[in-house]
Design a protein around this nucleic acid. Structure first.
Lengths: 340, 340
DNA sequence: GACTGGCACTCGGTCAGCCGGAGTGCCAGC
DNA sequence: GCTGGCACTCCGGCTGACCGAGTGCCAGTC
């Protein structure tokens, strides 16, 4: 019951036409627009098979065919070759990213760029703290019993936390604390710090141990364990393209999902394999996004990956183009980070 | 041609009913739902006058009446008393804000809270740098020719900028720079710093002047002049309540406007008079938001104002309730900031 | 003079019925 | 195994009728 080449070709044609026109595609139109070399009747037979196999379906009897999620999946996996970016697009990417002055700026520019190029909703995760190393830890006395802990990561991220101290600490002691903390932690992966931090507390002279313990708990709790991932989002307005036809009538669930950072992280996180990932319709675990597709990938300097980025759109999207753009942007961002 | 009390009462009834039901309201329904003590025919006469004056209009002949922007304006200015918050709402606010650990957290919680309570789109501006004072400036050497400048403001905001130095600077000099910069600037309003910074450069020994100049220019350019305002946004999904009926059929322009930080700032900025501000429909300068209303106010510790917050929704919104909530939330946030 | 009841009129929304067109499935023939 | 032909289905759009909500106006009443 395997699909021969022509049937696959028919599927490809259906996907391409439907993505472009947003309308169910019939056998006659298909042979007209693509040089299939066979008659509409033959195509109809092929369509019947494709439908039986679950790759396409009819919205109603006597309407054209529309790809199913499975159809898109097959298309993405076997029928589409990655589209090369146009020189104009390459230039746009470079121009867009070249003036960035700090990490915030890079992330914001990237997310807007992605939204603009793909004409979809774009999401970019800030470099994950969990994958960063400590470049420097700064302790800034705010008052005698308050210290601002500033952590600068090698990925460019800077996080600050206010630490309330149990008792007043003189400025000299702060200097000493700073030195000790940096000696121990600078250059270390954040994930590797817990035992080191514990060591710091243990090695402390009794009189400053309480202070160090305070510092250590803030460090561990808010930067290592509960390290909040940050995100940037752009292009929500693109959801309204194509009317309310995509997303089965209402943007509600999609907009709701986009407001939940946890959900977005799930979407573009899981960046292990460093390859581009495509989730089509029902393949999404999040119920609100069953009518959407997500294309995501990891980025980072060189071969390492420090964060994820991706776009979200209707299942009816230009997969080859989107995949190419997402990849290209990720690569550029990675290069940019490598320069620091 | 002035409107007597009953006509105003009729207008109020129309606004309240329309806000609630989302449907044009007719004379008969009006006398049934409100104890106006007159017959529908009389109400019709009043309506005719109100329509002539431009406070209400008919979507089509022989349909009920709908308030115009001017009608809402009159309602807000003269007909509505501010609604008191329910104890439940007060408790919600307190509970929501009480656990905040840092400024980011405060802002994020606030914006979500606002969105949730008003069921509209909420915007919260971070405390403006322009209205902040310098609490501390920290210089962190990243390499011999790179310094991370970290500014901690009294409002809790922390900004960092990477400074590329013209020549290597030894650690001791950095310490010295840090001391001098803080002596001069700590405690000063950011807006007052430019002459002081200039003084710092002028007073510098020739050998460190280039470094100081570098620092000064980053400070002035990116923190004082081009000081970027930051924002948080939440509740976009609330736009879809009431179908696509509000916002004349398409969310597009509204979503687009919400993506432009500049636009949002204009909306909730301009916080001079410290009073709550209501912009209704066409009163908005931004074309994309002509079908929306914005309720905004300033917040800050005590009587000073350091930033703005507000909500955006359809012109058909519960103004008294929204105004009360926006005010209350602003007050709570101000109190919270005052505690630091 | 202000309010009221009554009446004719308007017009949007809905429903049924009709028609055309696009598209299908199937079948016989090559 | 492909093709042309044919009957069938069903969506979408159009039309006309009807209903109901709501209005404007007018004459009558307090």
């Amino acid at each position: 019951m395997s699909l021969d080449d022509r049937k696959l070709e028919v599927l490809r044609a259906i996907v391409e036409d439907y993505v472009e026109t947003q309308e169910p595609v019939g056998s006659k139109a298909l042979v007209e627009r693509h040089q299939l070399g066979v008659s509409p009747a033959t195509v109809r037979n092929d369509m019947a098979v494709l439908e039986e196999e679950g790759y396409i379906r009819q919205p109603h009897t006597s309407a054209g065919r529309v790809p199913t999620d499975a159809g898109y999946r097959l298309f993405v996996d076997r029928l589409s070759k990655v589209k090369a970016l146009s020189p104009a697009e390459r230039r746009a990417i470079e121009r867009f990213l070249i003036g960035a002055v700090d990490l915030d700026d890079v992330v914001h520019r990237t997310v807007r760029l992605l939204a603009q190029l793909t004409r979809q909703v774009a999401v970019v995760q800030y470099p994950s703290l969990a994958r960063s190393s400590v470049r420097h830890l700064e302790l800034v006395p705010i008052s005698t019993t308050r210290i601002m802990l500033v952590m600068i990561a090698d990925t460019g991220r800077v996080e600050q936390r206010l630490v309330e101290l149990p008792s007043p600490v003189p400025a000299d002691d702060v200097t000493d604390l700073r030195r000790r903390v940096n000696e121990k932690l600078a250059g270390k992966k954040l994930a590797d710090t817990p035992p080191l931090v514990q060591g710091l507390v243990d090695d402390c002279a009794p009189e400053s141990r309480a202070t160090m313990a305070c510092l250590a708990s803030v460090l561990l709790e808010t930067l290592v364990e509960r390290s909040e991932e940050r995100l940037a989002l752009a292009g929500t307005a693109n959801l309204t393209r194509g009317g309310v036809l995509d997303f089965q009538g209402t943007l509600r669930p999609v907009l709701e999902a986009l407001e939940e950072e946890v959900i977005l992280l799930k979407l573009i996180g899981d960046l292990e394999p460093s390859t581009t990932r495509v989730r089509i319709g029902d393949e999404n675990e999040i119920d609100n996004l069953r009518s959407a597709s997500v294309v995501s990938t990891g980025y980072g300097p060189g071969a390492t990956i420090v964060g994820g980025l991706g776009v979200l759109g209707p299942t009816r999207m230009d997969y080859p183009g989107t995949i190419a753009t997402v990849r290209a942007v990720a690569r550029y961002v990675g290069d940019l980070l490598a320069q620091n």
